[in-house]
Amino acid sequence: KVLVLALYDYQEKSPREVTMKKGDILTLLNSTNKDWWKVEVNGRQGFVPAAYVKVL
């Protein structure tokens, strides 16, 4: 399983997205889209901007 680090806070803007806080460790589920990556955080799955996270 691939983990990513949240570099910035992100507030979800649609039901398909998830909120994350800077420093959160998320599970990367899909990174085929260069702009939006699907992650799991706190038991929820959704998209975050790829530029806001870094693969650990």
Score class of each variant (00 low, 15 high):
residue 46 G to F: 07
residue 54 K to W: 12
residue 41 V to T: 12
residue 52 Y to R: 06
residue 27 T to H: 09
residue 30 N to T: 09
residue 4 V to Y: 08
residue 54 K to S: 13
residue 45 Q to F: 11
residue 37 W to L: 06
residue 5 L to Y: 13
residue 14 S to I: 05
residue 45 Q to T: 14
residue 25 I to Q: 05
residue 17 E to V: 06
residue 26 L to I: 11
residue 47 F to N: 04
residue 3 L to V: 13
residue 39 V to A: 02
residue 35 D to E: 12
residue 34 K to G: 11
residue 37 W to H: 03
residue 42 N to A: 15
residue 40 E to K: 06
residue 25 I to A: 04
residue 5 L to R: 09
residue 55 V to Y: 11
residue 41 V to K: 13
residue 4 V to H: 03
residue 15 P to Y: 12
residue 40 E to H: 06
residue 12 E to Y: 04
residue 30 N to E: 13
residue 10 Y to M: 01
residue 46 G to V: 04
residue 53 V to I: 10
residue 1 K to S: 14
residue 21 K to C: 09
residue 9 D to Q: 03
residue 45 Q to Y: 09
residue 52 Y to G: 10
residue 42 N to T: 08
residue 33 N to Q: 12
residue 23 G to K: 02
residue 46 G to R: 02
residue 47 F to S: 04
residue 40 E to I: 06
residue 12 E to L: 07
residue 15 P to D: 13
residue 48 V to F: 00
residue 42 N to F: 10
residue 16 R to K: 12
residue 41 V to D: 05
residue 13 K to F: 06
residue 44 R to S: 08
residue 56 L to N: 04
residue 43 G to R: 05
residue 47 F to M: 09
residue 35 D to N: 08
residue 29 L to K: 04
residue 1 K to Y: 15
residue 24 D to R: 02
residue 35 D to T: 12
residue 53 V to N: 01
residue 18 V to Y: 04
residue 40 E to R: 06
residue 4 V to G: 12
residue 17 E to C: 06
residue 31 S to C: 13
residue 53 V to A: 03
residue 46 G to D: 01
residue 35 D to A: 10
residue 51 A to W: 11
residue 2 V to E: 10
residue 48 V to L: 02
residue 50 A to K: 07
residue 11 Q to L: 13
residue 49 P to A: 02
residue 19 T to S: 14
residue 12 E to W: 05
residue 22 K to A: 15
residue 9 D to V: 02
residue 7 L to M: 12
residue 43 G to N: 07
residue 7 L to A: 04
residue 18 V to I: 13
residue 36 W to S: 03
residue 18 V to N: 05
residue 14 S to Q: 08
residue 31 S to R: 08
residue 53 V to L: 12
residue 51 A to E: 09
residue 39 V to D: 00
residue 46 G to T: 02
residue 18 V to T: 08
residue 46 G to W: 03
residue 53 V to K: 00
residue 37 W to E: 01
residue 43 G to V: 04
residue 48 V to I: 12
residue 51 A to S: 09
residue 9 D to P: 07
residue 20 M to T: 03
residue 17 E to I: 03
residue 37 W to Q: 02
residue 40 E to L: 07
residue 31 S to E: 09
residue 51 A to Q: 13
residue 15 P to M: 10
residue 6 A to W: 01
residue 35 D to F: 13
residue 26 L to W: 02
residue 15 P to S: 15
residue 2 V to K: 10
residue 31 S to H: 12
residue 22 K to G: 06
residue 50 A to S: 11
residue 25 I to V: 14
residue 35 D to P: 03
residue 45 Q to C: 09
residue 14 S to R: 09
residue 3 L to W: 12
residue 15 P to G: 13
residue 43 G to K: 08
residue 14 S to C: 07
residue 42 N to C: 08
residue 28 L to P: 01
residue 55 V to Q: 08
residue 25 I to D: 01
residue 2 V to H: 14
residue 49 P to W: 03
residue 52 Y to D: 05
residue 53 V to H: 00
residue 29 L to N: 03
residue 31 S to M: 10
residue 21 K to D: 04
residue 21 K to E: 06
residue 45 Q to R: 12
residue 52 Y to A: 09
residue 43 G to E: 07
residue 25 I to H: 06
residue 22 K to Q: 15
residue 33 N to I: 07
residue 2 V to D: 10
residue 25 I to Y: 07
residue 38 K to A: 08
residue 23 G to V: 01
residue 15 P to K: 10
residue 11 Q to S: 15
residue 6 A to F: 01
residue 53 V to G: 01
residue 22 K to W: 04
residue 1 K to D: 15
residue 31 S to F: 11
residue 54 K to F: 11
residue 49 P to I: 02
residue 34 K to E: 09
residue 46 G to L: 04
residue 30 N to L: 13
residue 9 D to E: 06
residue 26 L to M: 14
residue 19 T to P: 07
residue 44 R to K: 15
residue 15 P to T: 10
residue 13 K to T: 15
residue 43 G to W: 05
residue 40 E to Y: 08
residue 4 V to L: 14
residue 5 L to T: 09
residue 16 R to V: 14
residue 25 I to E: 04
residue 27 T to G: 07
residue 28 L to G: 01
residue 54 K to A: 15
residue 11 Q to H: 14
residue 43 G to Y: 12
residue 27 T to R: 09
residue 52 Y to M: 13
residue 6 A to S: 05
residue 45 Q to I: 12
residue 47 F to T: 03
residue 52 Y to F: 12
residue 20 M to H: 01
residue 35 D to C: 10
residue 10 Y to I: 01
residue 1 K to N: 15
residue 1 K to P: 15
residue 38 K to V: 14
residue 28 L to Y: 02
residue 20 M to V: 12
residue 23 G to L: 03
residue 36 W to P: 00
residue 8 Y to M: 13
residue 37 W to F: 08
residue 11 Q to C: 08
residue 12 E to V: 06
residue 47 F to P: 00
residue 19 T to H: 04
residue 40 E to N: 06
residue 24 D to G: 03
residue 56 L to K: 04
residue 13 K to M: 15
residue 46 G to S: 02
residue 17 E to R: 04
residue 31 S to I: 09
residue 11 Q to E: 15
residue 9 D to R: 03
residue 42 N to R: 11
residue 27 T to E: 14
residue 7 L to F: 04
residue 7 L to V: 08
residue 8 Y to V: 14
residue 33 N to Y: 08
residue 3 L to Y: 14
residue 51 A to D: 13
residue 43 G to S: 10
residue 6 A to I: 02
residue 37 W to T: 04
residue 41 V to Q: 11
residue 17 E to K: 04
residue 7 L to S: 03
residue 11 Q to Y: 15
residue 33 N to P: 05
residue 46 G to A: 03
residue 53 V to D: 00
residue 24 D to W: 10
residue 9 D to K: 03
residue 47 F to R: 04
residue 6 A to E: 00
residue 30 N to V: 11
residue 6 A to P: 01
residue 15 P to H: 14
residue 3 L to M: 15
residue 13 K to I: 11
residue 54 K to P: 01
residue 34 K to T: 11
residue 3 L to I: 10
residue 7 L to P: 01
residue 19 T to F: 05
residue 19 T to R: 07
residue 35 D to L: 10
residue 56 L to F: 07
residue 23 G to F: 05
residue 45 Q to V: 13
residue 19 T to V: 03
residue 45 Q to L: 10
residue 17 E to Q: 10
residue 38 K to M: 15
residue 30 N to M: 08
residue 21 K to S: 12
residue 33 N to H: 15
residue 5 L to H: 05
residue 3 L to R: 09
residue 14 S to F: 06
residue 45 Q to E: 14
residue 6 A to M: 02
residue 32 T to L: 11
residue 18 V to D: 00
residue 14 S to W: 07
residue 8 Y to Q: 12
residue 27 T to L: 11
residue 23 G to M: 04
residue 41 V to N: 08
residue 32 T to F: 11
residue 21 K to R: 14
residue 45 Q to P: 06
residue 3 L to T: 11
residue 7 L to T: 05
residue 39 V to P: 00
residue 29 L to D: 01
residue 5 L to D: 01
residue 6 A to L: 02
residue 47 F to Q: 04
residue 27 T to W: 09
residue 9 D to L: 02
residue 27 T to D: 06
residue 1 K to H: 15
residue 7 L to Q: 05
residue 15 P to V: 13
residue 41 V to P: 00
residue 32 T to Q: 14
residue 51 A to C: 10
residue 27 T to A: 09
residue 49 P to M: 03
residue 47 F to L: 10
residue 46 G to E: 01
residue 16 R to H: 14
residue 2 V to Y: 11
residue 21 K to A: 10
residue 22 K to V: 11
residue 9 D to M: 03
residue 49 P to N: 02
residue 27 T to P: 15
residue 42 N to W: 09
residue 40 E to G: 06
residue 19 T to L: 03
residue 3 L to S: 10
residue 53 V to P: 00
residue 6 A to R: 00
residue 6 A to T: 04
residue 40 E to A: 09
residue 24 D to M: 10
residue 13 K to V: 12
residue 42 N to M: 12
residue 54 K to H: 14
residue 41 V to G: 11
residue 6 A to G: 04
residue 28 L to H: 01
residue 28 L to K: 02
residue 39 V to G: 00
residue 2 V to G: 12
residue 54 K to Y: 12
residue 2 V to Q: 09
residue 44 R to E: 07
residue 12 E to T: 10
residue 16 R to Q: 14
residue 55 V to M: 14
residue 55 V to S: 05
residue 2 V to C: 11
residue 4 V to Q: 01
residue 12 E to G: 13
residue 11 Q to P: 07
residue 10 Y to H: 05
residue 38 K to L: 15
residue 18 V to W: 04
residue 56 L to H: 08
residue 56 L to D: 04
residue 48 V to A: 04
residue 50 A to P: 08
residue 40 E to T: 07
residue 25 I to W: 05
residue 44 R to V: 13
residue 39 V to L: 04
residue 14 S to P: 04
residue 30 N to H: 09
residue 43 G to F: 08
residue 21 K to M: 12
residue 31 S to T: 12
residue 54 K to C: 13
residue 4 V to A: 13
residue 39 V to F: 01
residue 44 R to Q: 11
residue 50 A to E: 04
residue 40 E to D: 12
residue 3 L to D: 05
residue 52 Y to T: 08
residue 55 V to K: 08
residue 10 Y to R: 02
residue 16 R to A: 14
residue 9 D to T: 06
residue 9 D to I: 02
residue 29 L to G: 02
residue 29 L to Q: 05
